[in-house]
Design a protein around this nucleic acid. Structure first.
Lengths: 245, 245
DNA sequence: CGATATGTTGAAAAAAGTCAATGGCAGTGG
DNA sequence: CCACTGCCATTGACTTTTTTCAACATATCG
């Protein structure tokens, strides 16, 4: 419930020119001269699980692109209740709102071990002024974020589907490529599942337990919360209650 | 449940230079020369209530800015269920996704009488190429849309608050300035309330009825679905169940 | 090794959904 | 003009889902 801010480990300057993620991310259109601006200003960083990358309301100083792991964006309402509004994964940009406002709009917390590139705001602003090549990518990011948010709204929130169905949908969205190339599911904590889907931890626990009993999912790595999953059956459950129509 | 496409009324070319909404909307930074591009290409249009402005999946040909009324964005899931993902009001831009994809991502349906400016895609693209002055406004739009979507997620969806609380929040968000200058609430149909909040029409009806019985809201204009509302009490309900904190 | 989070399970209560019947209102066509 | 039809809203009774409260197990970490 309480997050502990853990100092992140600095991993060295990022070599953006040769970044394997480059085509996925913001800088794919940049040219040689543009990288002079970027030079030595972008750091690779690593965060442990449950680390706060930044707080809602804090002055925005950088955006981050996720290289590994997952990050949750949390909003707190006035009454103290918290809700996860989105989960960002490899290739996503964290803190996009920094470019326009001067404060972050949510708290960003790592779900597991996370590696990011930290791009200071001044770099973004200079790139934005001196080259047009960034604009389009930025818009694509925004559009993708918006689209994701809408999908969450339509598929993951209450009312249209029961909790079991939504948990299945969430798990399907949490698929990641395991080290051995197998497609695995990265299981969030029960509390996070609850905060994402708008259900209690107990309900989340009961549903996950039942999936486990039915052999739909099985832990493969307790540390990293990785599970092997029966995707087809999960998809069937995700499609909704089995009305034999 | 079934929407009827009603031919919209063409209202004449829009005089963007002197538009009263201009500072609110996209073109606030444009200069005299930029309007040559725009010249005579932007139409004012009016739609009756429940008109489909465009369908999800349709080829995107224009974006619209709302001058009057409200528009709902609807998503259909595979199983046919529909969900309202956002409601756009005066000053908002409808169909922003058209700029990047080539298809609309939702169906846009008017909630009441709506007036819009229709900006054809080619105009946007030309402006985008020939002037940088549009970029920033566009980003602001995207950011605002994203922020709104997150707020919906956090405040209007199930799990964090009971249905009664969420209905109160929705009503507060539906405030509009009436003709006589009074602040009124534009009441959506029960079906729309349900589709926005993820509750059934029956539940929506029961809650609205109870608000009415308690004198919290009273109809002032049956046609336009306008209600006078006791804002302070609604805000109290919107804050959450009255736990004596 | 205790202390503190995290996850599991059960039983009872509350919230919301479902099913079914009814009323009102607007538009249609005789 | 009036009966008729279709749509929307309302209300009641009953069922289902989910929450709540409480106890207990299991890990994790200093």
């Amino acid at each position: 419930m309480r997050y502990i801010h853990i100092k992140s480990a600095w991993q060295g300057h990022s070599d953006c020119r040769n970044c394997t993620l480059r085509e996925m991310v913001l800088f794919s259109d940049l040219q040689e001269q543009d990288f002079l601006i970027v030079h030595e200003q972008i750091d690779d960083m690593a965060f442990p699980p449950n680390a706060v990358m930044f707080h809602m309301g804090a002055r925005a100083e950088a955006v981050y692109t996720v290289r590994r792991g997952a990050v949750k964006l949390v909003r707190y309402s006035s009454n103290g209740a918290q809700r996860v509004v989105r989960v960002l994964k490899k290739g996503d940009v964290v803190g996009l709102e920094a470019l326009l406002g001067n404060a972050y709009e949510h708290t960003a917390v790592t779900l597991n071990e996370v590696e990011v590139c930290r791009i200071p705001l001044p770099v973004m602003q200079r790139l934005d002024r001196e080259t047009q090549r960034l604009e389009r990518r930025l818009m694509e990011r925004w559009q993708r974020a918006l689209s994701e948010a809408h999908t969450w709204l339509a598929e993951l929130t209450g009312g249209m589907a029961d909790a079991r169905t939504r948990v299945a949908r969430l798990l399907l969205r949490m698929r990641v490529l395991g080290d051995d190339g197998e497609l695995l599911v990265c299981m969030p904590s029960r509390e996070d599942i609850g905060s994402i889907l708008g259900i209690t931890v107990e309900t989340a626990s009961r549903i996950i337990s039942s999936f486990q009993r039915d052999g739909l999912i099985q832990s493969v790595d307790g540390r990293n919360r990785l599970y092997r999953a029966d995707i087809p059956v999960l998809e069937q459950i995700a499609a909704g209650p089995a009305d034999g129509y």
